[in-house]
Structure formats: C-alpha cells, structure tokens
Design a protein around this nucleic acid. Structure first.
Length: 887
RNA sequence: GCGGCUGUAGCUCAGAGGGAGAGCAUCACCUUGACACGGUGGGGGCCACAGGUUCGAUUCCUGUCAGCCGCACCA
C-alpha cells in the first residue's frame, strides 16, 4: 500500500466522509478485491444477489451486502482464495415499466409508438445512464467485491447461458408451450408466475343467481363472486353424490341476460356444503373451472380480454372493465329478478406483486417449465444434506414449496428481457427452438418464419446466476475454480423466487448444488415494525445514513442488529450508537498512538515481564478472537459484532487503557515499554477483528500504525495463542475490578465530590488476596481517588468508616465527618438483604441431596464456593451492622 | 386448513438447562492529561400464561392467549 505518514496525529473526532472514498480507492486500485492466483489457497466464492440495474440501493441491499462483505473480508484474511462476484439484474417488468413511465411523462409516447426495436434501444440507453448508480452505491458501502468480474444478466455470456438452458430443457421435453390458464396482470399486460401473485383477503359479496331450467319457473341457484364472467359460463356443476340435484343432471339451463344454454354436469370438485352446491363453470376465467373444463372437454370461451375489459361475447357489456361490468351485471340481474340474494364474504384474491392490480386468471398460450423432474433432484439433494440452511428452519419451508410446486410459466409479454429462442414456421407450422438466430425453418427450410414475441421471466436468467456469471456454459477457469460457490446470502423473501430456482437449475446443468450454505436474513423494517415502502413513505435511504454517519456506522448497525433469519427494525439511534462506538475506537487508537515510543519501535512482548493487567487483556483478546471466529464461521454476525463491541469498549477502553496509564505515566521505563507493546498488540488485533465490520475506519487507523507491512484488508486474521490463556490473571483483575467498583460505589452513594481524596483501608485474612491488593494498590488509589491506602491482614477495624465487602476482603473508608449511622445502617441493610437472598438460593440447592448427587461435580463445587463466599460476605456486613447498632 | 416466527427492563433487542443482560431512555455526580459521539455510580424485570420433563426451566416439551409471516383453499 502507499505509505501514509506513520504516527501522524489523529483528530479527536473521526470524520468518515473525508476518509471513506479515499480508502475505497486505495483498496480498489491495490487490486485487493481480486483473487490472487494462488492455488495453494482454498477457494471461497460468493455471488452477489444482483440488484435491479436501474434501481437504487435500499436498506435491504445494504444489510445483505454488509453481511456478505463481512464474510468475504473475514475469509480473505483467514487465507482463502476469495472471490465475490457482483452484478446487476435486468429486472424485466420493473425496468420496462419505469422506462415506459418516463417516456410517457417526458415525451407523451407509449412503447407502441416507438416500436419494439426503438423501445428496447431506449431501455439500453437508460441502463447505460443509470446502471452505474447502484454499483456506485455498493461501493459507498465498502463492499469488497471483484468489480473486474461484474456481470449483467443480459450480457452476451449470460444470454448465451440462458439460451443454452432453454434449448436443452426444450429438447428434453422439460419446457413446453401450451394453452393454459395463467395469472394475467391487465395493467402490466403480461403473464405472471404463481409466486408473483400475492393473495390478499378482500371483503366481497357472494351473489346467488337463478339459472332457469326453462321448465316452468324451475331454477338452479348458483353462487358466485364473479357474476361478470357468466357470459363465458359453459356449464353448471354439482357434486355427483348431491341428492338435491340428481334429477337435474344432464338437463340444461338458460343463462340469465344472454339466454345461452348450458348443461348441468357433475364433478367431485364441487363442495356440496358451500353456497348452494351448484357452481357455474367458466373454464377461461378460473383455474379450478379450467380443470373441470378439461376433464369434461368443455368449450373455453373468453369474455374478458387481455386489457381487463369485456368483449363481444358479453354483448351489451362489451367494453366495460371487469369492475364496471360486475356492477352493471348485478344491477341487471336484480332488475330481471335473477338475483336470489347476496351475502357478504371475505376471500383471498390474487394481486400482481408488482403493481397490486387484481390478477385475472386468463387462458392463453404460454411457455412453461415442467417442474416435477427438476424438483425431484433438488429435494433429494436437500434431504441428503447437500445444502446447509442457516438458520436450519428454512429447509422445511424450502422442501414444502418444492414438494408442491407447479409448472413454471416463464413467458412474459414484455420487450425488455431475453427473447424466447423459438421461431414459428408460417408454412409447415413447426416450432424451431435454437441456440442460433434462425432465418429458415429447420423442418421445411421455408424462410417464412417469425420469432416468438415474448421474453423470459427475469428469474429464469437469475436462476443461472451462480454459474452463468462464472463463465458457464464454457468450462472457464473461473467456473472450474469457483463453482460450486461457497455460500449464498440473501433475504428469506426470495427463497422461492431465486434460491430454489438456482438449486434446481444448478443441479440440472452442473450436477452440483450451486452453493454449500444458504444464509438467509430477514427484512429491514421501519421503526414501528412496518415494512418500508414507497407508498407509506417510511423508507430510509442508506445513502442518507452514510452521508450523516458514515458507511461503517451503517454497517455496524446492520450487522450487530442481526439475529439469524429474523427481521430487524431501523432506528437512527442505533446508527448513532454505532457512530459513537467507531469514534470510541478512533480515540482509543489515538491514545495508543500518542503513547507509543517516538521511534515507533516496539519491544517484543516478554511474558515474564508482563503485569497481571497485561496478561488479563491478552487473555481477553484471545478469548475474543476465538469466539468471534466461531460466530463468523457459523454466520452469526450479530453475536460476533456484539462481542467485539464489548471487548473494545468495556475491556480495552474502560479498563485496560486506564490501567495502562499508570505504567505509561510512571517511572519504570521497562514496564512502560511492555505496556506500549501490549497496547499495540491489542489494538493491532482489535483492528483486524473489527475490519470486516467497519472496514474504513480500521483501515484508516491502520495506516497510522507503525510496523505495518501491508493494507489491513489483506493482513492475516488473528490466531488464538495458548500462551495468552490466563485464568490467574482473570481472577486477579476480577478482584481489582471488584474493589474499584466497591470503592467508587461508596464514593458515589455518599456524595463524596470527585476531587476529594479519601483514605481507604482494606483488610483481608488471605495472603494471596493481600499480595494481589498490594500489587494493584496504585490502580485502586487512582481509580478510587485514594490518597492513603492501607492494606493489612490484621489489626483494628476502623471505627467511624463506610464499608463494603468483596470476595475475601473488606473495604473501609474512614470519613468521620460523612458517616451517618442511620444512612450507613440503611446501606448495609440493603446489602444484607441481597446477600441473604444469595445465601438462601445456594443453600437451598446444596441442601437438596438430589442436586448434589445428580448435578455435574463442577456445578456443585462452584455452588459450594459461592455459598462460602456469600456467607462470609454476609457475616462481615452483619458484624458491621452490629457494630454500628451498638454505638 | 398446513407450516413457521415472536412474546425478557419505559423503548429496541441479545442471551442461555445451574447466580436475569446490552444499547437507548431515565436519575445523580463529573471539563480526571484518547474520547461529552465521553466518564462514574444508581433505579428499573413473577423472562406472556398453564401444565409437563428434570436434582434444577426464563431456556427443553405440550397446550393456551397475543402479535406477525409464509403456503394452500375459497363458487
């Protein structure tokens, strides 16, 4: 890396805005995001879920990217050959709709005014113009993905992959074209797949309509929620076992308003309990009716067109929208005496997941992927544990979906996307499906052919993402080295849309699960727990957050707010907290840097010369390295981040730095050197550990560190070292902390002003405790502002003094003027209550013979130790109370 | 109807078969030579409810209630 000035002084407040861009450039120009050709390292690869090329970053992306970047940076430092492939998605409907809207607003033109070719050209221009917006935003977040491998779903290579897959599936009979009932969005004017339909409960009415038999006034009452489709009714069905209607089966009915004649048929699909037990059958406008129609070979006339309006079949109602027609038909039925009654009901109605328009079940010719054969290996693979879900519970959801999946409608009536590689021959009528552009029919060699107008579902190309981005169908170097990828990280909301499809496509075409681990996170929500949405206007722009608090603060917030698989709420206060933490780290680093030796040369750590506090912080660091590494290995980012937060703030800043000051400002030059070395070692480790979470600030601090050899991003992840494990130091510093807290508590509770120096006596009967206290006396004096500290194993207890007990020792603060017998008794009384509780709890356990018999011996031992400790403390406090009461 | 998640301090949330935690908020005190984006001390909780398993349950199991989310059906 370029050599920044060493040991330069840092400002007292960290200002991310001035640093982040520069650091990112430094990384990118240093080529650190690209893997080094090093075959001795194990590969670790991730493909980034591609955002919409013309979209902009939202907090969900930011979260997703942060988690991926944490893993990537961690694995890179651990020593894997890491590659993270970024890219964008052409997002068919979304992009097309957006361009159409702008076209309409700015030029009052529709896509039909332009024609297909010109329109598609305009979308490409739009993509060129706005396509870098989102990738720049991903850069602003600090993502260390390999931009040299960036892909777009409509790149040549990826388009080749799409064609290859389409053709192969078609040749295997796994893609077919057929006239079926599909989900149609009249506003988007395209077919949708089942999962692009959202079911919402709607309060509606159930209309009971009289269909006359033509004999006298005899009628059958049919219940329907969609009277406007009656013009396309071809039958009325009853359950074969429904005795009420047995005599009518085979007879005909006259449709009200049109007088068409339709038969009464039987089908077990009919639920005799619902409504009247009679169902009107409209095969072209209802998925269930469609199946009935197929079974009974019924006609399938359509009365609603693609634009959602009624057609000529509806006679006088032609031209009305579905909604208008319903109102009019109901009114006319009522007027004609055909409406028996109406009933309020609530039922689920499908809505377009993109524009929320009510979806029309629509009979049309579309392309489908046969799912049965694709789902089977996917299920088998998952059940054989070849795919590791984090958290595990998503596996069940995944399996359930695959077990029930229906054929996938993949054709879309759009212009923006991968055009279906099928050509129809106008002479022989054959369908040609081909990898190459065709000009003549492969069957009859006629030049009279035309390509299918439709494009493929965007998810069809996304399904190939993990291998198409790496070069497939070529056996490219990248594909051979980095596929299957190591992990796929994304929100659980696209488990079916994307993850499932990648899995079955991966298995079909590469014979591998496309990734080993599937790590699913939740959704980011607004403060009140609601979904962030444009319509609610409660969205937060991550770029705003970055601008105000820095990318690191955003990242740390998102990462530490993560509980595997769960949603999290966004609060500005959390970001502020993260910003404060980053500033804390900044200042702790400043402290360390200011106190290193002027020449920047560090003494090697000499274990024999270290003090307990040094061994303690190194022990803590060791512990932190271990747990953070473990949490990261298990993709538990939240817990890893929180551990680091606590270690950095509590152990390092609040305690160790304060301990270190004594040595740094003291007279012992040798000790000072060791302290400097420890400070440096801990900061060094901390920066490495925090780097995946808050890469900018850690790299920036790193640049100021002496003795650095390379950029932090490519340094080694810290290793645990057995030599730094020190139970003894934990115990020693634990006692010091207990004494300090007790001393501070006395000062605070008695309102002793901070500037006032006090006298303290500590009495203990244990020689090891005594030596710890003697060794630590300067800490106690400094932290509790004690001018005169007496430590003794025997002797008189100070008379008029405030007191506290700690494990193995008693503390006295003689303060004649401040001791009020009443308040002191009250203080001690509270302590007695607390300690009594503890003693009782421990006694109850230990008096239970079953506990002593059955509980693990270490639990019993520790319980015994606790009891002794509490009993002793209790006794001391009571003695003290007795003494006061006798006054 | 099937499946899942959540219920812990005022708020947002961790946690874990064996002494209830954090951040924010709150109260008191503090310009202590890294940091007021800071320091010190304090208050605050039958860990939703009822059973069960266990020596021991806030944690595991079952059920109930409440909130939420998928999937399926709905004439």
């Amino acid at each position: 890396m370029p050599n920044g000035p060493s040991n330069r002084s840092l400002a007292s407040v960290y200002v991310p805005q001035t640093v982040e861009k520069e650091i990112y450039q430094l990384w990118e120009q240093g080529g650190y995001f690209q893997p080094r050709p090093d075959l001795s390292k194990r590969p670790f690869s991730i493909v980034m879920p591609p955002p919409n090329v013309t979209g902009s970053l939202h907090l969900g992306h930011a979260w997703d990217n942060t988690l991926q970047d944490i893993v990537i940076r961690y694995k890179r430092m651990v020593g894997f050959d890491v590659v993270w492939v970024p890219g964008t998605d052409h997002a068919g409907i979304a992009t097309q709709t957006r361009v159409e809207k702008t076209l309409q607003e700015q030029e009052s033109l529709s896509r039909n005014d332009l024609g297909r070719e010109v329109f598609v050209k305009r979308v490409w221009e739009w993509k060129q113009k706005f396509g870098s917006l989102i990738t720049d935003q991903i850069r602003a977040l600090g993502s260390s993905c390999d931009w040299s491998r960036q892909r777009f779903t409509m790149d040549d290579g990826l388009s080749t992959a799409v064609r290859e897959v389409f053709v192969r599936l078609y040749e295997k009979g796994m893609i077919y074209r057929g006239k079926r009932i599909i989900n149609w969005c009249p506003r988007c004017a395209t077919a949708l797949s089942d999962i692009e339909v959202e079911h919402q409960d709607i309060s509606a009415r159930l209309y009971y309509v009289r269909y006359l038999t033509g004999v006298d006034d005899q009628a059958v009452i049919v219940a329907t929620t969609r009277p406007e489709t009656m013009f396309a009714d071809v039958a009325v069905a009853v359950h074969p076992a429904d005795e009420r209607y047995v005599s009518l089966v085979g007879q005909t009915l006259h449709l009200p308003l049109t007088n068409s004649v339709i038969p009464i048929i039987t089908d077990t699909y009919v639920d005799p309990e619902f409504g009247t037990g009679c169902v009107k059958i409209t095969p072209a406008h209802d998925p269930n009716d469609f199946e009935v129609g197929q079974r009974h070979h019924l006609d399938m006339p359509q009365c609603i067109d693609a634009d959602g309006k009624l057609n000529a079949l509806a006679g006088p109602y032609a031209g009305l929208t579905r909604e208008q027609a319903r109102v009019q038909v109901v009114a006319d039925l009522k007027a004609g005496g055909y409406l028996e009654r109406e009933e309020d009901m609530v039922h689920a109605v499908g809505h377009c997941s993109r524009c929320n328009t009510v979806v029309e079940p629509f009979l049309s010719t579309q392309w489908f992927v046969r799912m049965e054969e694709l789902a089977r290996p996917a299920l088998a693979g998952v059940e054989a544990q070849n795919l590791n879900f984090v958290p595990e519970r998503f596996q069940k959801v995944f399996i359930h979906w695959l077990e029930n999946v229906r054929d996938w409608c993949i054709s879309r009536q759009l212009w923006w996307g991968h055009r279906i590689p099928a050509w129809y021959c106008d002479d022989c009528g054959q369908i040609n499906v081909s990898r190459e552009e065709l000009t003549t029919c492969e069957f009859c060699h006629s030049a009279n052919i035309h390509q299918d107008e439709d494009v493929l579902d965007t998810w069809f190309s996304s399904a190939l993402w993990p291998f198409s981005t790496l070069g497939w169908p070529q056996q490219s170097e990248d594909f051979l080295r980095y596929f299957p990828t190591s992990a796929l990280m994304t929100g659980y909301d696209i488990l079916f849309f994307w993850v499932a499809r990648m899995v079955f496509m991966g298995l079909e075409f590469t014979e591998h699960m496309p990734f080993q681990d599937v790590v699913l996170h939740g959704l980011i929500r607004a403060e009140d727990g609601k979904k962030m949405s444009k319509s609610l206007g409660n969205g937060v722009d991550p770029l705003d957050v970055i601008e105000r608090y820095g990318a690191d603060a955003l990242r740390f917030t998102l990462a530490t707010g993560t509980t595997p698989g769960n949603d999290q709420r966004f609060h500005w206060e959390k970001v502020e907290g993260s910003r404060n933490f980053i500033n804390k780290l900044w200042n702790a680093s400043r402290f360390v840097l200011l106190n290193l030796s002027a020449d920047g040369v560090m003494a090697p750590l000499d274990k024999s010369r270290l003090q307990a506090v040094d061994r303690w912080i190194l022990h803590r660091l060791n512990d932190t390295i271990e747990s953070v590494s473990n949490f990261l290995d298990g993709y538990d980012f939240g817990e890893a981040g929180r551990r680091l937060y606590n270690f950095a703030w509590d152990d390092f800043c609040d305690w160790y730095i304060e301990f270190a000051k004594l040595s740094l400002y003291g007279q012992d030059a040798e000790m000072k050197l060791q302290t400097q070395a420890v400070l440096h070692t801990v900061l060094d480790g901390l920066l490495r550990l925090l780097h995946p979470f808050i890469p900018f600030v850690t790299e920036e601090i790193w640049r100021s560190l002496p003795q650095r050899e390379q950029a932090l991003i490519v340094t080694q992840w810290p290793q645990t070292q057995a030599q730094w494990v020190s139970v003894e130091a934990e115990k020693e510093v634990g006692l010091v902390q207990e004494v300090v807290r007790a001393g501070r508590n006395i000062r605070s509770e008695l309102g002793i002003s901070p500037g006032r120096e006090i006298t303290m006596e500590i009495q203990t009967e244990q020689s090891d405790t005594e030596s710890i206290l003697i060794r630590s006396r300067l800490y106690i004096q400094r932290f509790c502002h004690v001018a005169d500290l007496v430590i003794h194993t025997q002797g008189d207890i100070p008379r008029l003094a405030l007191s506290a007990v700690v494990s193995g020792a008693q503390l006295y603060v003689p303060l004649a003027g401040l001791v009020d017998v009443g308040t002191e008794l009250e203080r001690l009384g509270k302590d007695v209550v607390r300690l009594q509780g503890e003693v009782q709890r421990a006694e109850k356990k230990l008096n239970n013979s079953k506990f002593v018999e059955k509980a693990p011996s270490d639990v019993v031992t520790s319980e015994r130790n606790k009891l002794v400790d509490y009993q002793e403390k209790l006794q001391r406090v009571r003695q003290r109370m007795d003494w006061f009461q006798s006054q």
